[in-house]
Design a protein around this nucleic acid. Structure first.
Length: 848
RNA sequence: GCCCCCUUGGCGGAAUGGUAGACGCUGAAGACUUAAAAUCUUUUGCCUUCGGGCGUGCCGGUUCGAGUCCGGCAGGGGGCACCA
């Protein structure tokens, strides 16, 4: 018998699949469709073992569904715009385009040997002109529909690199590349009106039955709906009332001052007249916009001198302060502060010596607030000091509703809903992104390009030797004609956030060469994505943006109503981790060792010279820690099937799996063993015998268990059942024919996970055609029924004995047998049991 | 600070409220071999006076029966965070 050579077998089957075009998705009205999609990769340069796990999971589903008779769409593409390409160009010359497409070629070359069932004819990169041109068309339609608009917004600005930075690019208040102090700058930018759909996006989460509850919860929190009261404070000077929003209107009697954001119209108006106010506003705007920067920032306030009247008592005047912690884009940009029941307000009041008024106390303790605000949960009952709506003891929730009712009845305020979700700023002052298809005309203002002028292509002749956006200093590209007046105009030089690219690619895969963003016939057939698979890190932004885009595409006629929730089912897979091997160098710095340098003995690791290394298990793979597993090396050593089998085994798919050399080795040995068993089966000539039925029964049980496991995304369980059945088959004395049937079924059940080995065995055992085209085996219910079963007997809930009985033995017979059991007789010691519980087919419990 | 999740042998993990530890790794013993590799077989939660006893982070509850359900605590992880 020959050894199973993966380096020969795997390419052989890949060529055969290609030649037969088995993975090309075809619209077939006579068959149900199934669309499985893994989040497409960023072409960073090389694939990662985490990619292997991600795509293998999708492949298992895709191949399984093919065998179940579905017309399957399983595409792949590249999320190809973004900063790393520009950074590479800045660091080592070259062009982002060349860098990106070269990376794509390398990564495609690394992915193909995995034998994934991908329809490569649909491949595209988001930096393909064909793709981003359609994205521009989509943008224009959204502009038309009022879903895109321009407004001023505060951004992190790096004055050295002359660019806007994302929050995660600000480290310690400094730009991550330049090290320059980051400024907050107000720029006019483009926004998607995602918050206009906040309620809809929140409500629809309830229907996402096959999404992880965790992701749904994260999105709910992100959208952040709250209910509160909006009302106006009348100004003593007779100016327009100051509108405030509060979720705790019940604490109105604890009001200490009215606060407005530095960006509030009143503050801005004052700044124009009063240099002191202007200076304060400038001071208050310092620092980054990151959570960290915000947390460290000290509370700053400026007393405007304005006074407003308390709505419940016209004689009570409150001062109006400008405060740096009040956000302009949440609520009305103005608040009333209740320091007794809000820590932030309290800090501010203590600093500026403003009054602190308790409005309620705990039921047990009426100590006035000192340094710590009293903030009970809204469901906790508290005692009110003097509540205007007449409450004495009530929860916060009750008091809030009572106050809103009271204010509405009195006509000075109304209950409103607010969302935390902000509009999505999409402008990026970058080159390597989709150009925003508008021009700036001196006469007509901001004018959208005409669709017939699309695509607006990025110019190729750019350089990155000077900081800033190359599009800004490319006059030939910037110069444009105004589509409205025909006069000279300038192109918008901002490009789109790369999250835009990934917000609709799933729809584009249904018709990747269409001359419109989508093709309705194709979209109607293929959408929605039946199973989407990707990392939990995209739980909020990418998935929320995609949900928004699907709705926007429906509004603009690019998707049907039925596709407005684009992903029917979502699965978030865990990472592949690997131990880090660390020693401490002479200089006291950690030294990281490659796994090949470390010898493992009894759970400890040693270098060649005998030095013991620290083992940090289950660490995220990182080049700097020398613990990256390279898929290409694994495939070269063991083959793709081993890599696929390993990443599916051991750990549940949603959890991290640790790559270990011994585990990979074990997977390899197992697959070799399956091949040996199959070769054995192929040669056997033993006659049919009594063992046949038992083997076939085990086979049907395995069919049922593996099918269930794959359906339930429990790939590790499917692998475990296949191990078990392999052992059963190997030990079985069944006749040649039964063994052939069992082994062919084993190949079928393994085929989604180890497709090459499965094809080879299928062919060896005279299976017809490709195993991937063979109909998925069905478990025969008659074969799942066991004639005799082992029934455990518990005495007082502890297992003490067991009965071997016929499966359908009547209950009273079981009782008799149980009471006659040696262990039971001994325990009863002549007495009678207090209770006897018989659960048919499951258990007997004797209570003494 | 607010919200959420997790905790089972040496390790990864399995168990519709019904035999805890499937399956794999690691370790041990043995077979084959001149030897090694490869392969195969047996074994591997803890304690034990060999009768059995104890065991799913800790404390309590519901139940005939709890890893699973409920309450509290501890540890670990994640999300959000001047959101009024």
């Amino acid at each position: 018998m020959s050894r199973y050579e993966t380096s020969e077998v795997e390419p052989k089957w890949q060529e055969k699949w290609d030649a037969a075009q088995v993975f090309e998705a075809k619209v077939d009205p006579n068959r149900p469709k199934y669309y499985v999609l893994e989040m497409f990769p960023y072409p960073s340069g090389r694939i990662h073992i985490g990619h292997v796990r991600n795509y293998t999971m999708g492949d298992v589903i895709a191949r399984y569904k093919m065998s179940c008779g579905f017309s399957v769409l399983h595409p792949m593409g590249w999320d190809a715009f973004g900063m790393p390409a520009e950074n590479a160009a800045m660091a080592s010359g070259g062009h982002p385009k060349d860098w990106t497409y070269a990376n794509i070629d390398v990564m495609r070359g690394q992915m193909k040997p995995l034998g994934l069932s991908i329809d490569w004819t649909r491949e595209f990169a988001t930096c393909d002109l064909e793709y981003y041109g359609q994205q521009q068309a989509l943008f224009l339609d959204m502009l038309d529909a009022g879903l895109v608009y321009r407004k001023k917004a505060v951004v992190n600005w790096d004055p050295v690199d002359m660019t806007v930075l994302a929050n995660e690019q600000v480290e310690d208040g400094k730009g991550w590349r330049s090290g320059a102090e980051v400024e907050r700058k107000e720029l006019t930018q483009w926004f998607f009106a995602i918050s206009s759909m906040a309620d809809e996006l929140l409500e629809a989460i309830g229907d996402l039955d096959d999404w992880p509850p965790k992701v749904k919860l994260m999105q709910e929190n992100w959208i952040g709906k709250s209910r509160g009261l909006q009302f106006g404070f009348e100004r003593v000077d007779g100016g327009d009332p100051i509108e405030v929003y509060t979720t705790r209107p019940d604490t109105l009697n604890g009001a200490s001052f009215v606060g407005i954001s530095p960006g509030h119209p009143i503050a801005k108006a004052m700044a124009e007249e009063n240099p002191e106010v202007a200076a304060f506003i400038k001071e208050a705007s310092k620092g980054g916009t990151t959570a960290e920067a915000v947390e460290k920032a000290e509370k700053l306030g400026y007393d405007t001198g304005l006074r407003v009247k308390h709505p419940l008592n016209p004689d009570w005047e409150l001062p109006v302060w400008i405060a740096n912690f009040i956000l302009m884009d949440y609520g009305t940009g103005a608040i009333f502060a209740c320091p007794a029941h809000d820590q932030r307000d309290l800090d501010f009041c203590r600093k500026y010596d403003l009054p602190v008024i308790d409005t309620f106390f705990g039921l047990e303790d009426a100590t006035p607030v000192e340094a710590e605000a009293f903030v009970p949960t809204k469901t906790e009952r508290v005692r009110w000091v003097d509540h205007f709506a007449g409450l004495d003891i009530a929860t916060g929730e009750e008091a809030i509703e009572a106050t809103i009712d009271f204010a509405e009845a009195a006509g000075w305020g109304k209950g409103v809903e607010q969302f935390r979700l902000r509009d999505w700023g999409l402008s990026r002052q970058r080159y390597w992104g989709c150009p925003i298809p508008v021009v700036h005309c001196a006469t007509c203002g901001v004018v959208p390009e005409k669709k017939e002028n699309l695509p607006i292509a990025l110019p190729d002749d750019v350089s990155f030797d000077v900081p800033g956006n190359p599009l800004d200093r490319h006059p030939a590209w910037r110069d444009a004609t105004c589509p409205t007046c025909g006069g000279a105009a300038q192109r918008e030089t901002d490009t789109m956030d790369t999250f835009v690219d990934s917000s609709w690619y799933y729809a584009r895969f249904t018709a990747p060469r269409a001359t419109t963003p989508t093709d309705m016939a194709e979209v109607d057939y293929w959408m929605n994505v039946d199973q989407y698979i990707g990392g939990i890190e995209h739980a909020i932004l990418h998935l929320l943006y995609s949900r928004f885009f699907a709705r926007a595409m429906q509004v603009t006629g690019h998707l049907p109503e039925s596709a407005k929730e684009p992903f029917n089912a979502l699965f978030t897979q865990g990472m592949v981790t690997h131990a880090i091997f660390k020693t401490t160098g002479a200089d006291g710095r950690p030294k990281y060792h490659y796994p090949e340098e470390v010898e493992l003995r009894e759970g400890k690791g040693f270098l060649e010279d005998g030095t013991e290394v620290d083992i940090i298990p289950s660490a995220k793979m990182s080049k700097s820690k020398n613990n990256v597993v390279d898929p290409q090396a694994i495939i070269a050593q063991y083959g793709a099937d081993t890599a696929r089998w390993f990443v599916l085994s051991d750990s549940p798919p949603e959890r991290d799996v640790e790559w270990t050399a011994s585990g990979a080795e074990a997977s390899y040995k197992h697959l070799q063993r399956v091949w040996r068993i199959a070769s054995d089966v192929a040669r056997a000539d033993r006659a049919a015998n009594d063992a046949d039925a038992e083997l076939l029964r085990a086979m049907h049980k395995t069919i049922q268990e593996v099918t269930q496991a794959i359906d339930g995304f429990a790939f590790n369980a499917a692998v475990a059942k296949l191990y078990g059945f392999t052992n059963t088959l190997n030990k079985s004395d069944a006749g040649a024919e039964a063994r052939r049937i069992a082994c062919r079924t084993l190949a079928q059940l393994m085929s989604p996970m180890t497709p090459h080995l499965a094809e080879e065995i299928w062919a060896l055992l005279d299976g017809e055609g490709f195993v991937l085209n063979a109909e998925w085996p069905k478990a025969d219910p008659a074969m799942l029924v066991e004639d005799t079963i082992t029934l455990p007997i518990q005495i007082n809930g502890k297992r003490r004995s067991e009965l071997k009985i016929a499966k359908d033995l009547p209950k009273d017979e079981v009782e008799k047998l149980a009471l006659a059991d040696e262990a039971v007789v001994k325990a009863l010691d002549g007495g009678t049991p207090k209770k006897l519980i018989v659960v048919p087919g499951r258990i007997v419990n004797v209570v003494i």
